[in-house]
């Protein structure tokens, strides 16, 4: 490592961080106002998101420019690697919060409401007719006589061995295609690199397309919505955040595809590609967790 010392790249002052901060600030103000029922808030939110996208474009084009100009050495590359890995770790912890919630609800709170273990008195005095089953089609307040439930009764849930299985296969294959792309890149074979990347992007977006179809089906035919009690809550929160990550990931791969076509990467030097590939694998692994714990068992 020591050979690279002494030439660490320190960027000149940059306006992108403050632009990004202001853009996020605007989005949050807009989002907050929107949730409080202000139409102008929605407009501000749109403006803010636009500004965030503008910031990303600007910031990354600076980085790409620097990278192409050869300003980065091995050490900068390693810094980026540490940065990306810990960023992904933080995302893992974000999902952990929701998986933890799912665990708590399935293993603890719903059984307690149904009278198991510590929930004996809870069940007897508050929800005597509630039955703890998973998937939870009927919420505790539906079991009370003479009370109008705040939630929607679920007609059916989405079976694991249907579209979700197809989606699993799609995502797993996309993991393979991106690895094939990486192998092609390491051999400096540009055409297969681009083709495999294009296949990955396609698989990603098809996944999102199916997911949207599934949501529509859930909302319209199954009465499975965010408002369907805690099953709907965990289902949409987990799959929703995951779907959002797939969209982001696929978009990032799209950018990498364009950059590959422009010949930005060399067999030795392609951190951007690798960072995105790591991210994609992370999204993939989260899906497996989802598939098993949300859809399957």
């Amino acid at each position: 490592m020591s050979d690279s010392h002494g030439a660490y790249f320190i960027p000149e002052p940059s306006r992108w961080p403050i632009v990004g901060t202001l853009a996020l600030f605007l989005s949050f103000i807009g989002g907050g106002m929107m949730l409080n029922g202000s139409g102008f808030g929605t407009f501000l939110l749109g403006l803010g998101i636009g500004a965030v996208i503008y910031m990303f474009c600007g910031w990354f084009s600076d980085v790409i420019g620097e990278s192409l100009a050869g300003s980065y050495n091995k050490q900068v590359d390693v810094s980026f690697r540490w940065g990306m890995s810990w960023f992904i770790f933080s995302e893992v912890m974000f999902f952990a919060a929701f998986f933890g919630a799912l665990y708590y609800i399935r293993v603890l709170s719903v059984p307690w409401l149904g009278g198991e273990g510590a929930g004996f008195a809870t069940h007897m005095f508050l929800w005597p007719d509630f039955e703890a089953v998973w998937p939870l089609m009927m919420t505790p307040d539906m079991s009370l006589a003479g009370v109008e439930s705040k939630f929607m009764e679920i007609k059916d849930v989405i079976p694991a061995f249907d579209v979700p299985l197809v989606n699993t296969i799609l995502l797993l294959s996309s993991g393979v295609t991106i690895t094939l792309a990486h192998h092609a890149l390491k051999k400096d074979h540009r055409a297969p690199l681009c083709w495999w990347l294009a296949a990955t992007v396609l698989l990603g977006f098809v996944f999102v397309y199916f997911q949207i179809g599934e949501y529509a089906h859930a909302y319209h035919e199954l009465d499975l919505t965010m408002k369907s009690g805690v099953y709907g809550s965990t289902f949409f929160m987990l799959t929703g955040f995951h779907g959002f990550h797939v969209t982001m990931g696929a978009t990032m791969i799209l950018v990498i595809l364009v950059r590959s076509m422009k010949g930005h990467f060399s067999a030795k030097d392609h951190f951007a590609f690798e960072g995105v590939a790591w991210y994609w694998h992370f999204v993939d692994v989260v899906w497996l967790g989802l598939y098993v714990f949300v859809y399957w068992i």
């Binding site: 409401l113 505790p140 705040k150 939630f151 009690g229 809550s233």
Partner: peptide, 16 residues
């Protein structure tokens, strides 16, 4: 958005 993470009536738990 009507979720029930922290509402026992929907199967959640404020303690969570």
């Amino acid at each position: 958005f009507g979720t029930a993470f922290f509402d026992a009536a929907g199967g959640g738990d404020p303690v969570m």
